[in-house]
């Protein structure tokens, strides 16, 4: 029993790490642009397909493929911001609709390019790190956890220690005041969406060998990410990370000890409960839009 419990904790930590990467990007975009990006799960999917194309098909090194995924999806994000999101700034319904449109387009492109079949990606490392008798973690999963901690740490430093980070946080707190201080809203939006998309892309790239990679893989991720950002309080990055941990633990434990569908239901009910009791989220203080 102790083994199962410890193993579940290990699994939950892994789930929390990549979920946090996805959710933080979503929050960043919402904070600066006032748009909830429904296509965020598809950014994650694009990252995974970068690994399919570069690592599985062209046999390039895994790390290089992941880096390419980060850059490529980041660029897709920047292009999306300029063409679709900027005209819809602070128009929640418009932003919702264009991002759903983008979601459909990206899914179709993935289907047309790679087919609907699930991709088989050989994991770069088969090694399993044994923590104690009966409790282990595949090195591949461990790498995801390390990468998430590293990237989220870097993001925190960027936001709290650099000029652009200050600008970004200012635009999220009060766009008008930020603009009056001479911060370019266009530039801030571009950086926010670029980083947000890149984080989703790198999460997809890192987990591609560990999950089922197919054009609709973004669906379950986006639902989880929505739950996380609502529970964490839309607009709060720290809240999103904390909520990702809470949700991943609840979901993994219920999946292990009850079943997967019930775990999904519990997650959704958790979000509904937060919406009813405290719509600004457990850690959020601000209400935008």
């Amino acid at each position: 029993m102790t083994e199962l419990l410890l193993q579940t904790i290990v699994n939950a930590t892994y789930a929390a790490s990549y979920l946090a990467l996805v959710a933080v990007g979503l929050v960043l975009i919402f904070g600066v642009m006032g748009i909830i990006n429904f296509a965020h799960g598809e950014f994650y999917m694009l990252g995974a397909y970068c690994v399919v194309a570069l690592y599985a098909d062209l046999e390039l090194p895994f790390l290089l493929s992941v880096a390419a995924g980060l850059v490529f999806v980041g660029l897709v994000g920047i292009a999306t911001e300029r063409t679709l999101f900027r005209p819809m700034r602070d128009n929640p319904l418009g932003g919702l609709v264009v991002s759903i449109g983008l979601l459909l387009i990206l899914q179709s492109l993935a289907t047309l390019g790679f087919g609907v079949r699930m991709e088989h990606i050989p994991p770069p490392s088969q090694a399993v790190l044994t923590l104690r008798e009966g409790v282990g973690i595949p090195v591949q999963r461990l790498n995801v956890i390390f990468a998430a901690v590293l990237l989220l740490g870097a993001l925190w430093l960027f936001l709290h220690r650099t000029r652009w980070g200050f600008a970004l946080r200012a635009s999220a707190q009060d766009p008008e005041a930020a603009a009056l201080q001479g911060i370019s809203m266009g530039q801030a939006s571009r950086i926010a969406v670029g980083i947000g998309a890149a984080l989703a892309g790198v999460a997809g790239a890192l987990t591609a060998p560990l999950v089922r990679t197919f054009p609709y893989m973004g669906h379950s991720v986006i639902i989880a990410a929505f739950i996380v950002i609502i529970v964490g309080g839309v607009g709060s990055l720290e809240g999103a990370v904390l909520a990702a941990v809470v949700y991943a633990f609840v979901h993994t434990f219920v999946t292990t000890f009850v079943d997967g569908v019930i775990a999904d239901i519990v997650g959704l009910l958790l979000m509904l409960a937060v919406l009813i009791v405290r719509p600004t989220g457990l850690f959020g203080s601000r209400d935008r839009g």
Binding site: I223, I265, L268, M271, L275, P279
Partner: peptide, 25 residues
């Protein structure tokens, strides 16, 4: 209807998914 606008949108989605998962389960 404790929610409005965007929160209602997300809330209605969540409620719908719960019902759909109940059918599945």
């Amino acid at each position: 209807f404790r929610m409005k606008g965007f929160y209602f949108l997300i809330g209605s989605f969540a409620a719908g998914e719960v019902i759909r998962l109940l059918w599945k389960r």
